[in-house]
Design a protein around this nucleic acid. Sequence first.
DNA 1: CCATCTTTGTGCACGCGTTCACAAAGGCAT
DNA 2: ATGCCTTTGTGAACGCGTGCACAAAGATGG
Lengths: 259, 259
Amino acid sequence: MATGRNHRPATTRSRGIPEATVARLPLYLRALTALSERSVPTVSSEELAAAAGVNSAKLRKDFSYLGSYGTRGVGYDVEYLVYQISRELGLTQDWPVVIVGIGNLGAALANYGGFASRGFRVAALIDADPSLTGKPVAGIDVQHTDQLEQIIDESGVSIGVIATPAGSAQQVCDRLVAAGITSILNFAPTVLSVPEGVDVRKVDLSIELQILAFHEQRKAGEEALGEDETAPPAAPPAAAVTKRTEPGSDGDRPAVMPA
Amino acid sequence: MATGRNHRPATTRSRGIPEATVARLPLYLRALTALSERSVPTVSSEELAAAAGVNSAKLRKDFSYLGSYGTRGVGYDVEYLVYQISRELGLTQDWPVVIVGIGNLGAALANYGGFASRGFRVAALIDADPSLTGKPVAGIDVQHTDQLEQIIDESGVSIGVIATPAGSAQQVCDRLVAAGITSILNFAPTVLSVPEGVDVRKVDLSIELQILAFHEQRKAGEEALGEDETAPPAAPPAAAVTKRTEPGSDGDRPAVMPA
DNA sequence: CCATCTTTGTGCACGCGTTCACAAAGGCAT
DNA sequence: ATGCCTTTGTGAACGCGTGCACAAAGATGG
């Protein structure tokens, strides 16, 4: 089995900044950017917290990890804070990104305008389908998987986006890592196995919907109480379960992949 | 200010099941489905944990919240577990879903085959652009925003997906909620404000990339140690910051929206 | 029927994250 | 200059989540 890697404590305090705080910095940055565009000079923690959708105490503690950038009695200087957070997140430099798997989702990602504005630049598009090779998507010619290593080597990208079917994801991942990629954003519904030192973040629409369904069911169950909620459908070892998923119809493509 | 809502403890133990466990159930379900398709009858917690990318102790504890579905010395019956988790997540019933905002992403979502296999059915597509009205996307005719309330009322959906630009998101959200939607998956880069009882989950590609960039920067900084890492760029109140984001270019559209 | 071996289920401890509450700090008006 | 008022920054408490480690349970072979 090719698993067992990719398990760090998940609490790696990178330079003393808690992971939970890092995950919220982009939220603050977005809210601050909006304020900046409206030429608002300063904000209080209360206002900014409301705009970011978090607790004000949490926000202040988050900022305290970055340093004392506020002024008591006044608040935070918007422009200065934008810069500080941008710098902390590493957004003051340019991050070339390669997208592998130019299906419906990959194409959508390539067209995403929010990349450039945050310092992310789509450096290359790669797909295994020969019929796509050479065709422009979002103004960039799609290149064939065969040249993956060469492309990464030449463009010097360190962040890869995987938007391939699940079946190819691990293979693509391995090649990306071997070619020098150290950060991967994975849209394929698979658990990727990577060596230590490589970061993987995953986005899975299906999972989010399932979590919503859980809460939705709970809400419905509370209203119409007294349903046949607790009725064991079959014997534990007996396996006469209505399978909803016919083989091959799912778990094969990432969220948002076309047919 | 129209904020201050949408803040529940985030630790709502729905029926005793921790939120963190609920978030992992879809992972287990996916791994189990794969095993089921390979006709594997039983799995141990160790094997399944490896396939799902989690700790085996964590997995056992997660399952313990659902009940004692395993057999000591043997493991878990795959089919039975698939059913139990599906039932717990509410996937044994059909969940009609409405997608609002048929841009590049919305269209990609509409084409996503993983919906149906998990019990999610795209009931309607809605967009504000009149030129899209009536045109089929993924076999479904796009309908105009004017009919939003009517559509939701007739189709009886309870889950809505927002893939509109950020500027329209809150307005769309309000209308969805008013029409009876109680669960929202938000792709727009905005903090949605919803009344109590409505669940919102957000997916933001830009945020994920920024988190990756942070770690990537940290990795690079550790290698090339001794950089001018700690060099305050400007005075705090002075605001001569190189703004990377020109107004309107960002924060206006959800991740994966076309131009 | 008994012994052995595997694997579950969980009690317990630990650590991170969140929140409260308040003292310190700075602006501002008088 | 002085006092008041606002807001930050943080010490401390609490709660959830995670992982260890082991006892209980059941299957399996003799």
